[in-house]
Design a protein around this nucleic acid. Structure first.
Lengths: 166, 166
DNA sequence: ATTGCTATGTATAAAAC
DNA sequence: TGTTTTATACATAGCAA
């Protein structure tokens, strides 16, 4: 879409990600409203962005349950109000457990971002602000890589030929 | 849209309404997935059409209440009618939810692995089994990277010297 | 950070099958 | 009833301010 096609994967740049989020969120909410009106459908849509703010749409004949508002206000401290005390403990345990998973996701995502940056650097992108020592480290790594590749190219052909003879 | 512009109001013809519903529902679900991946947003989307069938999308790591909300609607009754029911539902929800998180972790890890492999290749590691075309692609990337780095080193030094004078 | 622009890619209304 | 096609409207990515 727009000026260029994009791959559907997490947008690395936080600013771009936020701009895209705002635009697409508006688009999604609009479409949700449209289908509910056009087709008389019941739709419930809830979106949380990175900033933690929530946006929602709910077609007129349904109601967003109070539990969602409660969740938003409490930000995960207590998941249920007094009416649902009987299952409070269970859900707290549930929350703690999933929090662990969420932490792992965060950790891996950070690793992920770091690798993306390193990859870009090796490809000569985003290097304008790098200090000289880093540039020299990169140059070195690239030279070594190039040497290895060329060596492999040189006797790789021979090896492949041998394999074909067998 | 399409062959003609339409007004956003209930489509009177039931057949057209259903056709439009199916198309737009698919579009909406797709967009919901896209924003959740692109912008790392948490999205919960539930749609009921006239036929009474339900469709849903829920991003990985979305909020528990949003998921509960979804199940509440699907069951067509309050979650908390009976204690026994609550626990049964929550248990299965817990499973679904953590499964969701685990899936996301898997997805990111896979991305991660791919990047690690590419990084190693660029550094000349693990290249023994690579076919010639891949080697040439790597060689090319490395040469380009090296050019960029060297260019940057050349006028980066000048720039740094200027900065030191200030 | 937000807003507006606009070229381009997508979604989809209507038709045709 | 569903699927495919096509012309058109819409959404939006990349910029610029």
């Amino acid at each position: 879409m727009g000026r260029g096609k994009i791959e559907i994967k997490r947008i690395e740049n936080a600013n771009n990600r936020n701009v895209t989020y705002t635009k697409r969120r508006n688009g999604l909410l609009k479409k949700a409203k449209e289908i509910s009106v056009l087709c008389d459908a019941k739709v419930s849509l809830v979106i949380f962005g990175n900033n933690g703010k929530m946006h929602e749409f709910c077609s007129s004949s349904t109601s967003v349950p109070a539990v969602l508002d409660f969740y938003q206000k409490q930000a995960g401290k207590k998941l249920w109000d007094a009416k649902h005390e009987n299952i409070c403990l269970l859900t707290s345990l549930h929350y703690d457990f999933t929090q662990n998973l969420n932490n792992e996701i965060e950790r891996i995502k950070k690793e992920n971002d770091n690798m993306q940056i390193e990859l870009r650097h090796l490809k000569g992108e985003d290097i304008t602000s790098l200090p000289i020592p880093d540039l020299m480290r990169l140059e070195n790594a690239l030279e070594n890589g190039l040497d290895s590749i060329r060596q492999r190219k040189a006797n790789g052909g021979v090896q492949d030929a041998q394999e074909e003879c067998m």
